[in-house]
């Protein structure tokens, strides 16, 4: 179980990375390596060139800017999980990260790597979607901004041109009076979730002012439940409201794989959505 041959590049700057991307055929970016390295070892990925981002300057860090938190693409999951700023301002992200793999993989895995890998079950993709993340993508023409909602264009395929790279992710901090919750069902601790639900509720008085519901693991990409969100806004947080919103999951398109058929994913979606809503509402009320 050893990788096939490839050429290795370890650039130090974003410009060098972009030059390499522009000049090399069949090149892959190596971020934390927690998904790509197994694929190399198992010979299911065959890049001719590996461009290692681990020594590139300017791709790490967590900063609060205006109403958003900006996280460099190569920031390790463990650093995000333990960041005081994240715990205080984006507890949903910290909560989700506790489900991502294990200590050893989070020590190495990066937020940008996870987003670009776009595994249908990836917790970070679901959270970024729930929080309306904005992605900073850099190419030879400069930096462009991209909504997370436009990022997945197919199964594990991000909307990145071959010569582009993700450099940072910006997550808007929700207003005061909000509550979030991340629930998932995985076979074992740290496994990819069969289904996950990321929920954000903003309460104003006794009414729901804003609701964001995202499911991971049900389809090729994250699924934002816009209809259910609309049902919730304006209503009072209650068992009946949440139940009705969760019931919307009965109609979603879900995938089947050897681990779980579509019907099971739909059932889980409803259960996890309801549970996440209840938790988020309780947290918002505190």
């Amino acid at each position: 179980m050893k990788p096939a041959p490839f050429a290795y590049h370890d650039p130090r700057s974003i410009e060098e990375v972009l030059d390499l991307l522009a000049s090399l055929d069949n090149a892959r970016l190596l971020a934390g390596g927690q998904s790509l390295m197994p694929m190399l070892n198992m010979r299911v990925a065959f890049p001719d060139h590996l461009i290692d981002l681990n020594r590139v300057e300017g791709l790490t860090g967590i900063m609060e800017e205006g109403g958003s938190i900006r996280i460099g693409a190569m920031t390790r999951q463990r650093d995000i999980e333990e960041s005081e700023v994240i715990r205080a301002r984006l507890p949903l992200l910290a909560e989700a990260l506790s489900h991502v793999g294990h200590r050893q993989t989070r020590n190495r895995g990066t937020i940008g790597g996870s987003l670009c890998n776009l595994d249908p079950s990836a917790e970070l993709v679901a959270v970024a979607t729930a929080l309306d993340a904005v992605l900073e993508v850099q190419g030879s023409a400069g930096i462009r901004e991209l909504s997370i909602h436009d990022f997945p264009v197919g199964f594990m395929t991000p909307a990145l041109a071959p010569e582009e790279m993700l450099t940072a992710i910006r997550l808007p901090v929700p207003p005061a009076g909000h509550g979030t919750a991340f629930t998932e069902f995985a076979r074992r601790h740290g496994d990819y979730a069969i289904v996950s639900a990321a929920v954000l509720l903003v309460l104003e008085g006794s009414r729901i002012a804003r609701a964001s519901l995202t499911l991971g693991g049900v389809g090729a990409g994250p699924l934002r439940l816009r209809t259910a969100e609309a049902m919730l806004v304006g209503g009072a947080p209650s068992e009946a409201t949440f139940g009705a919103a969760a019931a919307e999951c009965a109609g979603i398109e879900a995938m089947s794989d050897p681990q779980a058929p579509a019907w099971y994913r739909r059932r889980l979606s409803a259960v996890l959505t309801r549970r996440a809503l209840e938790t988020a509402a309780a947290r918002a009320a505190v």
Partner: peptide
């Protein structure tokens, strides 16, 4: 396992536990 699941190859890299089968020696 050499695919990053079993943890037998865990070493400390600059003090942090990582799977040595998922890091290239050159890194």
């Amino acid at each position: 396992c050499e695919h990053g699941v079993c943890g037998a190859c865990t070493v400390l890299l600059d003090g942090r536990a990582v799977r040595a089968c998922l890091i290239l020696a050159v890194q």
